[in-house]
Nucleic acid binder design. Structure first.
Length: 490
RNA sequence: CGGGAUGUAGCGUAGCCCGGUAUCGCGCCACAUUUGGGAUGUGGAGGCCGCAGGUUCGAAUCCUGCCAUCCCGACCA
């Protein structure tokens, strides 16, 4: 176990917190519920951003930016939307401070805003208010826009990366001429998220749809990707919403179609957040620290020299410089840590904590033998290999590590996904072996709520392309046509 | 918003019951010896004891009030 990090079997949530702090991803800030994302953590976010941004652009989307502040009146226009977000909005009421004469800075009551401004919890309202001015004809459609931004939701209880008051995300907002086109967009973005989760984050996910209870406020249909964490709890990793004509109606966004008939515009919105970093940690890491998938690791390979004299270091450095150059030409991010203020053992521990996928150690012994020592973070195994052909070997190894991390997570999910058919078994599994429970449900919100009240388990999703089969609801025994996925969730 | 806990050096803590300006460890700085898994020795620096009042000759310690954070619930990406 790493120093200062509690074992994840002992206290999972403490382990998660310790890991984030010790690995230098983030720290607490003076503001309740808001975290400081440190350079190492931010570089993971930048990696995520870069990949997703490319995927969005390849599917025809452009980036834009809308204001942080939204007039309060905008929120009252879409009824279920305001109901969903009203309880967690920060509000700006004044625009000036003043000195009260005894050295205290106070709000200047004379500087009260005519209309209060809401710090965006999401941007549908200001964007649809804007789209109204952009859309007159079917020729103006579709509008395919994404924004990288921060949002604020005044949550009762926060958790580093998983639920902070302020968080970073991207939110896509698209406008379409037909329902079919909007649904296709919703599904396309869900597939992009799933592709990203599985092939970049090495995180297997279930694609599905939310029940009406769990839908986004203002959506007709919410699609999601659900992942399973190592403690058996589920995490919603991304959502894609089909908003129908709700926002177009609320903001009066009409267009003239090819038949010269006025119609409301069809909408989607979709987003993923810095929560993905939380998912990355919870899905793969261990008691020694983070385990980052090579494709998202800010440092993919770290090289640690082991030497007694400057002369040896020079010798090693010459070799490392040419190796680094070769690795960089293969787009592999490499760090050569030749600090002489830390001993090798301390560096080994540090990079394990930070989840660097591959470590290369080179000492005089290696230089004599023409070898290096390679240590994998995912398996914690070491091997001595020849310097000849090293760059290609590393390249292949990184790919293998990526696959292995995915496979491990996939196996875990498989072993912790269970079909249950009785209420007793359902409750027993939640307590004894938490994970995804695939069970029949009678399709009513009342039953869903009752199950939640009694077990804290929610319907994570109705998986896409779900097998249709006859069955009886786990709680009420009423007939059901398909199984849905239950779990306790973050 | 309910329940629980905690605020003492950068971090983790002792002291508090029984008042006398603060303990230990890690980290930090200097020098030396070290360097294939978290080095060792010697010397050194660092504190408005969460904030504001009160009691007292004297408060980290006793009293009152406040503030903040964390954890567990309900709410949520």
């Amino acid at each position: 176990m790493s120093k200062g990090v509690i074992s994840k079997d002992e206290d999972y949530s403490q382990w998660f917190n310790d890991l984030i702090i010790k690995s230098d991803l983030a720290e607490y800030s003076p503001v309740r519920g808001c975290m400081i994302i440190k350079p190492y953590g931010y570089s993971v976010w930048e990696k995520i951003q870069a990949v997703l941004d490319k995927m969005f652009k390849e599917t025809g989307h452009s980036n834009a930016y809308f204001p942080l502040l939204i007039p309060k009146s905008f929120f009252s226009k879409e009824a279920s939307h305001v109901e969903g977000f009203a309880k967690e909005c920060a509000v700006v009421t004044h625009y000036r401070l003043k000195n009260d004469g005894s050295g205290n800075i106070v709000v200047d009551e004379d500087a009260k805003l005519e209309e209060e401004l809401i710090i965006r919890p999401t941007s549908e309202t200001i964007i649809w208010n804007t789209y109204k001015g952009w859309i007159q004809s079917y020729r103006d459609l579709p509008i395919l826009i994404n924004q990288w931004a921060n949002v604020m939701r005044w949550e009762m209880r926060t958790r580093l990366f998983l639920r902070t008051s302020e968080f970073l995300w991207q939110e896509g907002h698209t406008a379409h001429a037909t329902s079919e086109e909007a649904v296709a967009e919703t599904e396309q973005m869900l597939n992009i998220y799933a592709d990203f989760a599985e092939n970049w984050m090495a995180l297997p996910v279930v694609k599905g749809r939310k029940t009406p209870n769990e839908r986004f406020a203002g959506a007709l249909d919410t699609y999601c990707i659900e992942a399973l964490m190592q403690d058996g709890k589920a995490l919603q990793a991304g959502t894609s919403h089909f908003l129908g004509q709700n926002f177009a109606k609320a903001f009066d966004v009409k267009f003239t179609n090819k038949e010269n008939v006025q119609d409301f515009v069809w909408a989607t919105s979709w987003g993923v957040s810095t929560r993905l970093i939380g998912a990355l940690i919870m899905a793969h890491s261990d008691d020694a620290g983070l385990v980052l998938p090579p494709k998202l690791a800010p440092i993919q390979v770290v090289i640690v020299p082991i030497y007694k004299h400057d002369e040896e270091l020079e010798n090693i450095t010459t070799f490392v410089n040419s190796l680094s150059k070769e690795l960089r030409s293969k787009d592999i991010t490499v760090k050569f840590d030749k600090r002489d203020t830390h001993r090798p053992g301390a560096k080994f521990a540090e990079y394990e904590l930070k989840g660097v996928p591959l470590r290369v150690a080179i000492g005089s012994r290696d230089m004599q033998n023409g070898t290096v020592e390679l240590a994998r973070r995912d398996t914690k195994t070491k091997e001595t290999v020849n310097q000849e052909g090293l760059a290609s070997h590393i390249e292949a190894l990184l790919e293998e590590i990526q696959q292995n991390i995915y496979k491990k997570a996939a196996t875990f999910r498989e072993e912790n996904t269970t079909e249950v058919d009785t209420w007793d078994e359902f409750k027993r599994m939640l307590d004894e072996q938490p994970g995804f429970l695939s069970a029949h449900w009678d399709g009513t919100p009342e039953t869903e709520q009752k199950i939640k009240d009694e077990t804290k388990a929610t319907i994570r999703c109705i998986p896409l392309n779900n097998k249709q089969e006859e069955g009886k609801c786990i709680l009420t025994g009423k007939p059901s046509t398909q199984r849905v996925l239950f779990a306790r969730a973050y």
